[in-house]
Write a protein that binds this DNA or RNA. Structure first.
Lengths: 240, 240
DNA sequence: GATTATTGTCTCTTTGTGAGACAATAATAA
DNA sequence: TTATTATTGTCTCACAAAGAGACAATAATC
């Protein structure tokens, strides 16, 4: 359950799969910090992960990809499903009700959006600098938050983020190549900064460099003359 | 979508979360072979993973655990969610219809069991020797199949199994301790056989032994005098 | 007491990584 | 032009983990 364009809806889930929703944890990186994209519902002060519902004629992956592209504006997002949350304690219809009310929608108790949801959670890795944020009708803001300065979130969204980060850390070596966390070209230091932000710890420069070069992930390009008073670093990109 | 006790049901999903199901890939080990538990629906010849639906008052994990305990008879199963399958191409109402018909249930087109499902998949690791199989009303058999001799399965269940095995292989070192694949006490060779069956490759005996002893997973007990003409192996159990 | 199959442990090698040394720059200051 | 400074690319040494094989120590049989 979360944020998506929803036209005034009928009591049954016409067009949507009832009892199923998705949430997405969008990781971005800028200023040496790992960040997460969060939405705020207007007139409520409630903050949540971007998410939505699945149309009856959409694949699950497709629904998540499209919903997210609507918001971030980028195509070719790296997206990965990591867990499905299905505790009955997640069901808090009063919160949904509050959001709907704030938007002038008076839904009866039986309304499908007020019923219990199983939520399939995905994480995404995007290059913040290439994204233009566009909040939708239900939300009044759409903001990057530093991973260690998150606001209070609705439902179990804090838990969802925690699990997303755990999964990302565990799989980082395999995922970094397909991630969109860095621009096309970057230095070894840039790459190391991303690793450090995600892992939440500092890494040895030399070991890191050796490890990265050992894998056949990186393609080396010209040097980058940044104008600073020291040796110029090589530029790299990921092999396709 | 799959096999579970289902009383003749109303058109809406009264008591169940519509559009949501679970499937479980139950791994077992015997005779040096990794096996999987499959169900056959009577009068149809259709073979499927054991699965079922989630009641509106059950946690997702709870529903899977209880459903599986019904079938295998063991408590304390090791269970882990690994993926949620949500392609729209999974929706094949004619198969469900066939199963219902074979059980004398004539469901109208709008029946909730004939609608599209998102299926949350779990895998379980059980010790075959401690399990007593009890097929339910809808199925006429409930059988262990060797992992590399699987029959034709309904829907995308072959894909589900493949992904389960991949996940299990990737996480084996972390999961083996909590698994129920072996009896309480076992030899190093027994343990190696399990690894080999799961990974699908042979392992070096000495390296394997060293690695297992290096981790603090195993407790060593007396020797096992099997009556065979060679040195007696130690017996081990997992530390709790 | 010799034979046979298997087990527990040891050594040698290779690979990966932590930790640090050091020469090679690219701009700036003298 | 030369020295200074910060940073980068690479090298060495130490150590841990894993592949590969050697070998002595059994438990039953011949």
């Amino acid at each position: 359950m979360a944020k998506q364009k929803v036209s005034p809806v009928s009591v049954d889930g016409a067009g949507f799969l009832t009892h199923v929703a998705y949430d997405s944890v969008v990781f971005g990186f800028s200023e040496g910090q790992l960040k997460i994209l969060l939405m705020e519902y207007h007139n409520t002060g409630l903050i949540a992960l971007p998410g939505g519902f699945i149309r009856t004629d959409e694949d699950l992956d497709e629904a998540v990809r499209l919903g997210l592209e609507d918001r971030t504006g980028i195509t070719n997002i790296y997206l990965e499903q990591f867990h499905t949350f299905g505790n009955k304690s997640r069901h808090k219809p009063e919160i949904l009700q509050k959001i709907l009310e704030a938007n002038g929608i008076h839904a009866p108790k039986e309304h499908w959006m007020l019923q219990r949801f199983i939520s399939v959670a995905y994480y995404a890795l995007v290059d913040i600098s290439t994204v233009s944020l566009q909040p939708d009708a239900l939300s009044d803001s759409c903001t990057w938050y530093e991973i260690n300065r998150l606001p209070k979130l609705i439902l179990d969204h804090a838990t969802v983020i925690e699990k997303a980060l755990k999964t990302l850390r565990f799989n980082l070596d395999n995922k970094i190549k397909d991630s969109n966390l860095l621009p096309e070209k970057f230095t070894m230091k840039d790459l190391q900064k991303v690793y450090e932000a995600i892992l939440g710890e500092e890494l040895r420069r030399t070991s890191f460099q050796r490890k990265m070069l050992a894998g056949r992930i990186l393609k080396r390009h010209d040097k980058l003359y940044s104008g600073e008073a020291h040796k110029a670093p090589f530029i790299y990109s990921f092999h396709k």
